[in-house]
């Protein structure tokens, strides 16, 4: 029987309000901190729950991988694997002056392009992206896969240990979006995908690091 980290359920009481502050994935009722999700609890000063499934909820400054799905006059619409579409304004994507009335902006980004961007701002109903950060770029070639966004920290590992191991052993470049979209390019792409999918499915299991090492060594 593989050891799993303890799993909590929606509605499960985690602690008394005196024992900690309510963090992500919890709510307070009748003086108790309660889980909102089927997930892994994190106890500490803040008591929170990491959901084992669920859609990506965009947060400011998140680095995400998106797919351009539409072109407007002053920017582009992108699918960022979330219940809401995002918008990449012209001003955040191109440095030079553009007369948008005369220019066909698809020469910069076109429908079907994959971009690595940051979430600049979230205002009532609209999510704004930016390509200004140094890491931002169009991702050409390669393959993208989707994992549950809450598993991303596990995929990256402590100070990048997990993702770097995968990159080294498979000789690939991998970009991980906080939104659960992962882009891979290089030699053993299939093996990298296998490892990433294993993390997505078994993020709750202790000893996962060893299992991944085994997979990558074969």
């Amino acid at each position: 029987m593989i050891e799993t980290r303890e799993i909590v359920l929606p509605g499960e009481i985690l602690a008394d309000v005196k024992e900690g502050r309510p963090g992500h994935g919890t709510f307070i009722e009748d003086g108790k901190i309660i889980s909102k999700f089927l997930g892994i609890p994190k106890m500490g000063e803040y008591i929170s729950v990491i959901p084992l499934s669920g859609v990506y909820i965009p947060k400011r400054q998140d680095k995400v991988i998106g797919f351009i799905t539409g072109i407007e006059k002053v920017g582009w619409i992108a699918d960022i694997n979330s219940p809401w579409d995002a918008f990449l304004p012209l001003s955040e994507a191109v440095d030079e002056f553009i007369d948008f009335k005369k220019t066909d902006i698809s020469r910069y980004y076109d429908v079907g392009d994959t971009v690595y961007a940051t979430i600049l701002d979230i205002k009532r109903g609209s999510i704004q992206l930016s390509m200004r950060e140094p890491m931002a770029r169009k991702l050409k070639g390669g393959v993208t896969i989707k994992i549950t966004s809450s598993k991303v920290p596990r995929l990256i590992g402590k100070e990048g240990s997990m993702i770097n191991t995968i990159k080294e052993k498979t000789r690939t470049i991998i970009r991980v979006g906080q939104n659960g979209v992962v882009w891979i390019s290089g030699e053993k792409v299939d093996k990298a995908i296998k490892a990433i999918k294993m993390i997505d499915e078994k993020s709750h299991i202790l000893g996962l690091t060893d299992e991944i090492s085994k997979l990558l060594s074969d």
């Binding site: 909102k36 999700f37 959901p51 499934s53 859609v55």
Partner: peptide, 11 residues
């Protein structure tokens, strides 16, 4: 709903 990760106050 719990399986889908929709936040719930209880089952």
């Amino acid at each position: 709903l719990a399986d889908a990760g929709v936040p719930m106050r209880d089952l």
